[in-house]
Amino acid sequence: SSAPSAPAVPASSDNDSDQTTIGNAVSSADIQELGGQAVPWANAGTGSRGSITELVELKDGGLTCRRFNATRESFDGVAMYQGELCIADAGGWRMQEFKAL
């Protein structure tokens, strides 16, 4: 007898998980202490890793945002992204933009 195989997890769920991991690293980074150094990140759930560079914090009319570039190294290759994370009304960080370059 054979057991049914588990459904394949779509690659987009890995990307979403990595995006969340990158967002967490961006929101928790101490920009003053970094002094322009890259922030490494890794996602044990997907096996992906990379670094966050060009991390800057901007304040516009009371809205605080962080812009960044990130690399993602995974089994399917290396990709570069550009993103922006802003503090939402509830006080938590929210990804405003995350696009492949």
Rank of each mutant, 00 (worst) to 15 (best):
Ala11Trp: 12
Val9Glu: 06
Ser27Trp: 01
Ser12Arg: 15
Arg94Ile: 05
Ala11Asp: 13
Ala79Arg: 07
Gln19Asp: 11
Met80Pro: 12
Asn24Ile: 06
Ser48Asn: 04
Trp93Leu: 05
Trp41Tyr: 09
Glu73Phe: 09
Gln96Pro: 09
Gly36Ser: 03
Glu97Arg: 15
Ile31Trp: 09
Val78Gly: 15
Met80Trp: 12
Thr21Gln: 07
Leu101Trp: 14
Ala79Gly: 09
Cys65Arg: 05
Trp41Val: 06
Ala8Glu: 07
Phe75Tyr: 15
Ala79Glu: 07
Thr21Trp: 04
Phe68Ser: 04
Ala44Met: 11
Ser1Ile: 14
Gln37Asn: 13
Val39Trp: 06
Asp18Trp: 02
Ala90Asn: 15
Gly23Leu: 03
Arg67Tyr: 13
Gly61Phe: 02
Ser51His: 12
Gly77Ile: 02
Arg94Phe: 09
Ser17Phe: 06
Gly35Tyr: 05
Ser17His: 13
Asn15Gly: 15
Asn43Arg: 09
Arg72Tyr: 04
Leu34Ser: 01
Gln32Thr: 11
Gly47Pro: 00
Ser5Glu: 14
Gln19Glu: 15
Arg67Leu: 09
Asp76Leu: 11
Asn69Ala: 10
Ala3Phe: 10
Asp14Val: 12
Ile52Pro: 02
Gly92Thr: 06
Ser12Gln: 15
Gly61Leu: 01
Gly47Lys: 02
Ile52Tyr: 05
Ser48Pro: 03
Arg66Cys: 01
Pro10Trp: 15
Ala3Gly: 10
Ala90Gly: 14
Cys86Phe: 00
Arg94Val: 11
Thr71Tyr: 07
Pro7Glu: 05
Asn15Cys: 15
Leu58Gln: 11
Ala3Arg: 12
Pro4Ser: 04
Thr71Ser: 10
Ala25Glu: 08
Gln82Phe: 08
Ser27Ile: 00
Glu33Tyr: 07
Glu73Gly: 10
Ala8Tyr: 03
Ser51Ala: 12
Thr21Tyr: 07
Ser51Asn: 13
Gln82Tyr: 09
Ala29Cys: 06
Leu101His: 14
Ala70Asp: 05
Asp89Val: 03
Val26Gly: 00
Glu54Thr: 12
Gly61Glu: 03
Thr53Ala: 02
Gly92Asn: 08
Asp30Glu: 01
Arg94Thr: 15
Ala6Arg: 08
Ala8Cys: 06
Asp76Thr: 15
Ala8Leu: 02
Val26His: 03
Thr71Gln: 09
Glu57Leu: 05
Asn43Leu: 11
Pro7Cys: 02
Ser17Trp: 09
Gly77Val: 02
Pro4Cys: 09
Asp89Lys: 07
